[in-house]
Lab assay of single mutants.
Amino acid sequence: MASQGTKRSYEQMETDGERQNATEIRASVGKMIDGIGRFYIQMCTELKLSDYEGRLIQNSLTIERMVLSAFDERRNKYLEEHPSAGKDPKKTGGPIYKRVDRKWMRELVLYDKEEIRRIWRQANNGDDATAGLTHMMIWHSNLNDTTYQRTRALVRTGMDPRMCSLMQGSTLPRRSGAAGAAVKGVGTMVMELIRMIKRGINDRNFWRGENGRKTRSAYERMCNILKGKFQTAAQRAMMDQVRESRNPGNAEIEDLIFLARSALILRGSVAHKSCLPACVYGPAVASGYDFEKEGYSLVGIDPFKLLQNSQVYSLIRPNENPAHKSQLVWMACNSAAFEDLRVLSFIRGTKVSPRGKLSTRGVQIASNENMDAMESSTLELRSRYWAIRTRSGGNTNQQRASAGQISVQPAFSVQRNLPFDKPTIMAAFTGNTEGRTSDMRAEIIRMMEGAKPEEMSFQGRGVFELSDERAANPIVPSFDMSNEGSYFFGDNAEEYDN
């Protein structure tokens, strides 16, 4: 993207840094990872977990959730003011799984939030270390993106479920800051804005008074975040219109849905970061690795190297396929839920299948599930090659597409044709070009129609051997075009429920 120079890199967003050079960025990201790792080690000690239990991804998720809940100030305040039966607002906890007599047992633990905050700050040299908290939120978000298709949420806001490739980060909490905003897809931002506008339509006082002023500035800020994701002048001009509207209503909703559809071809720039579970960072720190000293990046080879040398386990339900569970977590670790499966298959070195073909449910185990038949197995999170994460949407291309997802959002900077089903997408653009945004709409449609099938995206960008740390010898991959490109292809993934 041309304006790259004016933006802070995501590592800076990730670490609240002012302008830093590459070495400083690597050190501050490393410091953040160190903090998460030290916190995780301490929690495993508190909970008396064995090494194996500490490497269980379900335990990692519970521990991450506990610290996120302990620092969720708004919710904590709300819980104190609106006490609900049987919930102690000062405590947080969740299921911890232990191996007892050759069987997995679930144990519900409860801790004072104050105590968890103390352990977290102690692991982070006394700081609140917001960057580390956001990092864990993005890992949870990436896992949700890989596990669930947001059909219901899309339909509720009037969008087409086939636009799911635009929904990265749709389950990120509001408090995820600049680093969170960077990884949100165009569809996620559109959905947040539509929800806001709908509230304004239904509630006369939404934009009024002292609160209304705050609401208005939040609305304009979200519009600017979305505008910054678009790469064409016409899309940005249309966002200006939406932002400046005196009284946002149905016309703005129409414009936003139009823009979301246009992003299936004229893709937005959305950041991709490899955020790993805390149970990967903990053992690495415990083994003596100093992330701050060595430096770390979320968008280069580092996460690949770390996963190459990590042992992570997962509980497996009786009829689940461990290899499929591994694929789910591998995609989440690489922030690749909406990437082209052919690119992923090449990088991973084994075939990556669409969601609907995987015999696996989510990673988390519900409290009512029976533990008797639970097994555990090693997650295979290694890769054959590594590639640089991208934040450009890439230019655009036609490809055989599917009944489910009709476009992709690249996660890796790797040369390819970008699949999208042009006739299906263009069919949504018939007729409606009147109104105050008509010239911009016409211009956007013209650009979409001009998108050429034979153009290559990320020209000359390749993948790298894991021994090639400096990215000196790019390998331009070859793809098996007979395979499906979309992950949520004609899909039956479970729906995400809060």
Rank of each mutant, 00 (worst) to 15 (best):
E244M: 06
T433I: 15
A278E: 04
V463D: 00
P95R: 07
D468I: 01
R19G: 00
S84V: 03
V190A: 15
I41Q: 13
D290P: 15
N247E: 06
G295T: 10
G490W: 04
L143N: 05
V183G: 05
S262R: 06
A263K: 01
F429A: 01
T45F: 05
P453V: 07
G394K: 05
G187Y: 12
G169S: 05
C333L: 04
G362Y: 04
Y52K: 05
G249S: 06
P161F: 01
G187Q: 03
I301L: 15
G185K: 00
S376P: 14
C44A: 13
D128F: 14
G282S: 11
I138Q: 03
G394M: 05
G94N: 11
T92P: 05
F479G: 09
T215K: 14
N395V: 03
P248W: 10
E339W: 10
Y496S: 09
G282A: 15
I316R: 02
D203G: 03
R382N: 07
E294K: 12
S467A: 01
V343L: 15
P277S: 13
F489Q: 03
M238V: 03
G169R: 04
G394T: 00
R65F: 07
G200Y: 11
G282N: 04
A179N: 06
R441L: 05
E210L: 14
L166Q: 15
G431W: 04
K7V: 00
D127A: 14
M13F: 04
K91D: 04
A387N: 03
T6A: 00
D421A: 15
W120V: 06
I475V: 12
H272S: 08
G17R: 07
A22V: 15
T188I: 04
A178I: 09
P95I: 06
S482Y: 02
E294V: 15
H135K: 11
N432T: 11
I301Y: 13
I201D: 06
F206W: 10
V312A: 08
A271C: 06
S69H: 10
Q405P: 05
Q327T: 03
S217M: 14
G450S: 11
M426D: 00
D88A: 00
T15H: 12
L381V: 03
P83G: 10
N492T: 07
L298I: 07
S84D: 00
S353W: 10
S297D: 02
H324T: 11
L298E: 04
S170G: 09
L259Q: 07
A332P: 09
F304T: 13
V329G: 06
M481G: 12
